[in-house]
Design a protein around this nucleic acid. Structure first.
Length: 231
DNA sequence: GCGACAG
DNA sequence: ATCTTGTCGC
């Protein structure tokens, strides 16, 4: 897999913001026509020396509940961490790791947000637009928007809204009873309903959807030689 | 001006 | 993201 749209990454803050606004016009919110079976999970983490970023990618077969492949890659850090501009820090490493994928996934779940973002262009949107494929974001904490706490049981869903409007930008989903909910929002070429269904069908035993959890697990061992992906 | 603020 | 062990509760 590789990007169909390319751009510079060593940008100023203001240039990065204007690029987001430009690329945000390319986001497509549509219901996928074909069946989604292979789901990619993406997660990142900085190296201990803070000089590089690692990215992990896994491909999960939703039908057989099995891991198809996993990869780890890295790239130099060229951007500071600024809320709202996370993608400029992480995507260079992600583009490196997705180059290695053999079983092209039908969709990617990204650790972070999609349109639940101040300019409706979180990392899941950015990656989805560059790769021109379906993506959605599954965040562990809130960046933007307002919501009422969903009920305590697994499967409870509460809409994420733009403050003081009736615009829905995501769903806050309880993937396990009595566990902190995750925040799901459209990245590209998908709709919120499908993203929500997939989040629930990929989780149950753990808080995070399986592809994301496995990628999390993998990137946590970035600076280790032996990797153990099995729980 | 003040507070909020993905990973 | 990361610094960090055992411990409480389902």
């Amino acid at each position: 897999m590789e990007a169909v749209i390319r751009h510079k990454w060593d940008l100023s803050i203001t240039d990065a913001v204007s690029l987001q606004k430009e690329l945000a016009t390319k986001v497509q919110i549509i219901k996928p026509t074909s069946k989604i079976r292979y789901i990619g999970g993406i997660d990142c983490a900085p190296s201990h020396d803070k000089l590089r970023y690692f990215a992990a990618a896994v491909v999960w077969d939703l039908e057989h509940h099995e891991l198809m492949e996993y990869h780890l890659a890295e790239a130099p850090i060229t951007f500071p961490y600024i809320p709202g501009l996370l993608s400029f820090r992480e995507i260079p490493a992600i583009l490196e790791v997705v180059k290695n994928i053999k079983h092209i996934p039908d969709l990617l779940i990204v650790d972070g947000h999609g349109i639940a973002h101040p300019r409706r262009f979180g990392i899941a949107c950015h990656l989805g637009v560059l790769l021109d494929m379906p993506t959605f974001g599954c965040g562990k904490s809130l960046l933007f928007g307002k919501y009422n706490e969903p009920s305590i049981e697994r499967g409870s869903i509460s809409p994420l809204m733009v403050k003081n409007t009736n615009t829905i930008i995501g769903n806050v989903i309880r993937t396990r009873t009595k566990v902190k909910p995750v925040i799901v929002s459209v990245g590209n070429k998908i709709d919120l309903e499908t993203a929500t269904e997939l989040t629930l069908s990929c989780s149950g035993k753990f808080r995070l959807p399986e592809p994301t959890r496995l990628a999390d697990n993998l990137v946590a061992q970035k600076e280790t030689k032996n990797i153990y992906l099995v729980n």
